[in-house]
Structures are given as C-alpha cells and as structure tokens.
C-alpha cells in the first residue's frame, strides 16, 4: 500500500518554544525572513478563567490541496506519501497557491518560486524524521504513515482525541492536533 505521511502534534506536551521553527529554518537553509513553520498561541477566556491552545503549524499537506488544484503551471504536485511539493522550475511565482491556501503556509522565495514545508522529504527518504519532529524537545511532533496501522502516529490517533485546523476549508489536511 502506498504511504500517506501525516503528523500528530500534541498540544498537551507542546510548550510553544519554537525549536521546531528554528530547526526547520536551519535544516532548509531559509532566509531570516522566511518561515515554513511557525507557532500560534491562542488565548481563550478572561482572567482568571483562561485556556491556551498552542499550535506548531506548517503546511497541512492536504489530500485535496487547494494549492495544487489552483496551480496554473503544475508546479505544485503530490509527491511520495502525498506530500505536496513545488517543482521550482515550473513555478512562475504567480501566487495563486498563496492565495488559495487556507493555512497561509506558503510564501514566495526570494528566487521567485512558491515555497513551503516539504515534510523534509529529503530526510524522510533517508529514513530520518522531518527536522521539526527530530528537534522538538518535548517530543510533541509525531511523524508517520497513516496507512501503517502499527505506526506510532496511527496508535496516537486511535488512542487520543484530536482536532484539525480549519477542517471546514475542505482540503483534507494531514496535521492532527492532539487535545
């Protein structure tokens, strides 16, 4: 069976430290102003009845990705494991994908092409974890194959409650936030 890569991100463990963000920037040699991942901390309630929701966010690697269907040149495509990639040579930097993405996961690289999280497929192909999952000091990020029932990922999704961000956008995201 083919692979379907996904991530479960444990909001109970995550402290929002941004180690994932910096690891991503270093691994992928991103410019200082460029981000493929980021952390959102949402406050709910009023003092003193408060709650936080901490999201380590990145491209959701949607199974029905608006960026792919809206790409006029075919630069955005589904690669191995369903990971959405951008073929740089085909990208004209038209920003249709940037506008289409409900998660604001894309930006235009200074060389003119659309860029975003690749799930570190270059690492995954070598049997390594994506840089963020490998770096996370709280081990909040579990990467794996949804089609492998023995994976830690599937076990977590079976045993824990989770939610998805902006599921209403209908793009079938593949990040699961454990609550």
């Amino acid at each position: 069976m083919s692979k379907r890569y996904a991530m479960a991100i444990d909001m109970k463990r995550c402290v929002g430290c941004s180690a994932c963000v910096i690891a991503c920037k270093e691994e992928n040699g991103l410019a200082l102003a460029a981000f493929r991942s980021w952390v959102e901390i949402e406050t709910r309630g009023t003092y003193p009845a408060l709650a936080l929701e901490i999201h380590s966010e990145r491209c959701e690697q949607c199974s029905d990705a608006a960026c792919v269907s809206n790409c006029p040149t075919g630069a955005s495509y589904y690669a191995r494991g369903g990971v959405v990639l951008v073929q740089r040579e085909l990208c004209t930097g038209c920003k249709a994908c940037v506008a289409a993405c409900p998660y604001e996961a894309r930006y235009i690289h200074h060389d003119g092409y659309a860029d975003k999280c690749t799930f570190c497929l270059h690492r995954v192909e070598k049997g390594l974890l994506p840089a963020c999952a490998s770096a996370c000091p709280t081990q909040s990020i579990t990467f794996g194959d949804l089609n492998d029932p023995s994976s830690d990922l599937v076990k977590l999704l079976r045993s824990r409650q989770w939610k998805q961000l902006r599921a209403d956008a209908g793009t079938k995201p593949n990040l699961y936030y454990l609550t």
Partner: peptide, 15 residues
C-alpha cells in the same frame, strides 16, 4: 510520482 508519472525532484537543501 504515481499520479502523473512525471519526473520530479525532491528539493534537498544539503545542509
């Protein structure tokens, strides 16, 4: 890839 049988490269930042 197995959708379009198109030649694609996986970008490697080589860090």
């Amino acid at each position: 890839d197995w959708w379009s049988l198109q030649a694609r490269t996986i970008p490697d930042p080589k860090t």
